[in-house]
């Protein structure tokens, strides 16, 4: 029987939605137990949130000032120590999990399965390669711990009706001092979070400037959507990097995705393949984005967006 340890992702005392998605992926293993570990300076609030996730058996906390920030080389030895007794160790395939989990795998001397899209068996998973142009089935070695990152866009969040016990874990691991967290410049926004929003409006190079991007924000606010962007828009400095959607940005799965002034490069499409409905607005009727859009509108965005706002009343 499988026993799964999930590494909680959190920031500023709040649990990230990616953790509840890892729980759903872990449930697909029909395991004997799913535990979550919270590594933090003050884990209590995050642990309390984690304890509510349905299907969680225990929440373990590791309290250490060194865990105030998620520095992968500091967290990894602690997670590796805790991995003893678990058949699987999962983390999300967010930048947090991508940074940390390979270190855990290396400490355990096992390969890592990146971006798990589906669970086919206790050691068999599907994952994307070549920017999602091929899906492979991989088998992890039968007799070793499975370390994996969970592709968050492929899984929904587990429900929040649980009440798992919270236990302090005692981890005797030697922590390195060679890495120092200096700071995080986070974009402050009252808009919904790009990775968990039900609606997302993204702008591309077609917007033409940082000032013009306002038209995207206004429209997004009107429909309560999060705002994303193509790499070209980020590179051109219209918007900050954390808004990038795609192979090397965020992989998202909103119910509604509206791409505005985005051509539909394959690296962008990789990030939105799991969206429910894709809408494209582009003045070039031959743009690649129309090949995959559920609803397309060929037209000038500077004309169409105000019209849309009007039509919404």
């Amino acid at each position: 029987m499988s026993k799964v340890l999930i590494v909680a992702e959190h920031l500023d005392g709040k649990l990230n939605a990616s953790t509840a998605k890892c729980v759903t992926a872990a449930q697909a293993l029909s395991p004997e137990a799913i535990d979550i570990v919270v590594l933090a300076a003050n884990p209590a609030a995050v642990a309390a949130e984690a304890a509510q996730i349905d299907g969680v058996a225990r929440v373990l906390t590791v309290t250490d000032e060194a865990n105030a920030q998620a520095v992968a080389q500091v967290l990894a030895p602690q997670v590796a120590k805790l991995a003893d007794g678990y058949s699987h160790v999962f983390g999300p395939s967010t930048t947090f999990g991508k940074d940390l989990m390979p270190c855990v795998a290396a400490l355990l001397g096992v390969p890592q399965v990146s971006d798990v899209m589906s669970v086919e068996g206790s050691h068999t998973f599907k994952r994307p390669i070549y920017a999602g142009n091929a899906i492979i089935t991989v088998e992890a070695p039968a007799d070793s711990t499975v370390v994996a990152t969970v592709r968050t866009a492929s899984w929904s969040e587990a429900g929040k009706g649980g009440s798992a016990p919270v236990e302090a874990a005692d981890v005797q691991a030697e922590l390195p001092t060679h890495s120092r967290f200096i700071g995080l410049a986070a974009g402050s926004s009252d808009r919904p979070d790009l990775q968990s929003a039900k609606r997302v409006v993204s702008g591309g190079r077609g917007l033409g400037s940082e000032e013009n991007f306002k038209i995207i924000y206004d429209f997004a606010d009107k429909i309560g959507a999060a705002v994303g962007a193509s790499r070209a828009a980020v590179d051109a400095g219209y918007v900050p990097n954390e808004m990038q959607v795609g192979q090397t940005g965020k992989i998202i799965a909103p119910e509604l995705y509206i791409a505005v002034g985005i051509s539909g490069a394959i690296q962008h499409l990789t990030g939105i393949k799991d969206a429910g409905t894709i809408v494209a607005i582009n003045k070039d009727a031959d743009a690649a984005i129309f090949e995959i859009a559920d609803i397309g509108l060929a037209g000038d965005l500077f004309k169409v967006l105000p019209e849309l706002e009007n039509a919404l009343g």
């Binding site: 001397g109 096992v110 390969p111 399965v113 068999t124 994307p128 999602g132 142009n133 091929a134 899906i135 492979i136 089935t137 991989v138 088998e139 992890a140 070695p141 070793s144 393949k273 894709i278 809408v279 129309f290 090949e291 995959i292 859009a293 559920d294 609803i295 397309g296 509108l297 060929a298 037209g299 169409v304 019209e307 849309l308 009007n310 039509a311 919404l312």
Partner: peptide, 29 residues
Amino acid sequence: AGKGLKTTAYAPPPKRSKGVMVKDAAELV
């Protein structure tokens, strides 16, 4: 030498079918 992952199958990704074109904002809404 360590044990690695074994790839047992390759498949194309699920296709998104081509959708419809609408002619203006009102139709889109």
